[in-house]
Nucleic acid binder design. Structure first.
Length: 419
RNA sequence: CGGAGCGUAGUGUAACGGUAACAUGCAUGAUUCGGGUUCAUGUGACUCCGGGUUCAAAUCCCGGCGCUCCGACCA
């Protein structure tokens, strides 16, 4: 991708109507555009990051045995009345609207009802279970107050998986596996070292739900973390009884601010009962399906990565979700060989299947370097007259600022191996 | 939904009640060329919307709308 054709440009100053670091940097660098409070557009750079996050999550869900599908955003009232979640008194964040004929519909704020309702058609025997459908979709929540940029929006893109199991044992087994998948996801997007399994309130069917909390001062949650055991307790369930049941000691816990980047939940038969979602077991007895839910907000996750991995110069993307792997920066020179070399290298990298943002703009070095730091692509390769004279290219790593010089024929190999 | 603050060129800011300025961006030309070079010219705003006070409103008052932050809320 040529930067001269990127559409978006960086700004020297962040927007005045965003205080949060994540939205400030993402807007300044041209990854997203603010449509209104809590609603953002994904621009080319931002979309690339989102798609990479999506693919990592998809990969982990598929490894778990997940079945990707796409449930509708427009939801019918009747379905939600079954679980008693249509009423505005009970659910205050619905976006509702009407069809031309007056029929009330809602924009989905979660997916349990949709899945329970759909699966009722297809589940009738123990042979049909377990099953793990999931989707990526836009979710709408009419929040009283959106806040913190990408961290709490009114429209956001998420992954939701639901497990449908024969009994508690089968459910528990999957639930444990899902924890590992979640850990893998946060490792792979680059915040695993600061993301901890956290015990949170469980609702009717289990003592706890589990959250994955990424520690950062930008977080709106408070957790109590045991450094040694690498587990945490959300403030909402932080009391002596809970600590005792988890074998945690108060004086070994440290209070931290964190962002909930994922959560998993045992639902029991909370939804299968109202939807009459049953199956026949081997003895031809009717049994309710046992459900679980597993969510990750992708926009929030992207925002969290920015909060955690950034410095005073800008964002620092891990290779796994960076919009491009290489930022090829050509410096202005009267020597036409500089441009020719940059073009050649751009083509070679592209041919090797490496994603490159090529800064071919007619701009000065300072502006290009500043933009490069702001956008945060992992590897920066500079093509300049100075380098050409030495027959070398300067390679700078955004993560640690390390600089090395490589010959032209060493570049592809270096980039391909770069993790 | 309670409280506080704020709405002015694309972006960031300024302007005593006296008829919108600066920076940046963008365009053109020159200059410069490894960390946002310097200069010239030009471009660009019904000052969020509606009403009121006044000879005169970006500025004061009222009502909306919007944005941010604090709180409440948050499978």
């Amino acid at each position: 991708m040529r930067q001269s054709k990127l559409l978006t440009k960086t700004r020297k100053e962040g927007p005045k109507d965003e205080v949060s670091k994540n939205a400030n940097l993402l807007i300044r660098a041209g990854f997203i555009n603010k449509e209104m409070a809590g609603v953002y557009d994904y621009l080319p750079l931002g979309l690339r990051v989102m798609q990479k996050i999506e693919n990592i999550i998809r990969d982990e869900m598929n490894k778990l045995g997940g079945l990707e599908m796409k449930t509708s955003i427009i939801q019918s009232k009747e379905v939600w009345e079954k679980s008693n979640r249509w009423s505005d008194e009970l659910v205050d964040n619905w976006f509702k609207t009407k069809l031309k004929n007056g029929t009330e519909v809602g924009l989905s704020f979660t997916n349990e009802e949709a899945y329970a309702n759909i699966l009722k058609q297809y589940i009738s025997s123990y042979k049909d279970l377990p099953v793990y459908p999931y989707d990526f979709k836009s979710i709408f929540r009419n929040e009283a107050r959106s806040k913190s940029g990408m961290l709490r929006g009114r429209e956001f893109y998420w992954k939701a998986m639901y497990s449908f199991s024969k009994d508690e044992n089968e459910h528990d087994e999957f639930y444990e596996k899902s924890k590992i998948a979640y850990k893998n996801i946060f490792d792979r997007v680059g915040i695993g070292h600061l993301t901890y399994l956290t015990f949170a309130s469980g609702g009717t069917f289990s003592k706890f739900s589990h959250e994955f909390q990424a520690v950062t001062p930008a977080g709106e949650d408070t957790i109590y973390f045991d450094e040694k055991k690498k587990i945490a307790v959300n403030r909402e369930v932080y009391n002596d009884e809970v600590l005792k049941s988890l074998g945690l000691e108060k004086n070994k816990l440290v209070e931290l601010k964190s962002i909930e980047v994922g959560n998993i939940f045992s639902l029991g038969t909370k939804f299968s009962e109202p939807f009459d979602l049953k199956y026949k077991n081997e003895k031809s007895e009717d049994k309710f399906v046992v459900m679980g839910s597993y969510g990750i907000g992708l926009g929030r996750l992207m925002g969290t990565v920015v909060e955690i991995l950034s410095d005073e110069k800008g964002m620092i993307w891990p290779v796994s979700i960076a919009p491009f792997k290489v930022h090829l920066v050509e410096l202005i020179s009267e020597n036409i060989k500089v441009k020719e070399t940059a073009e050649k290298l751009y083509n070679e990298l592209a041919k090797a299947g490496i994603e490159v943002l090529y800064d071919d703009r007619n701009a000065r070095a300072g502006e290009k370097f500043n933009d490069s730091d702001l956008i945060g692509i992992p590897i920066r390769i500079v093509v300049s007259e100075k380098g050409l004279e030495k027959g070398e290219f300067e390679i700078k790593q955004r993560m640690d600022g390390k600089v090395l010089s490589l010959k032209e024929n060493e570049i592809i190999n270096f980039v391909e191996k770069y993790k």
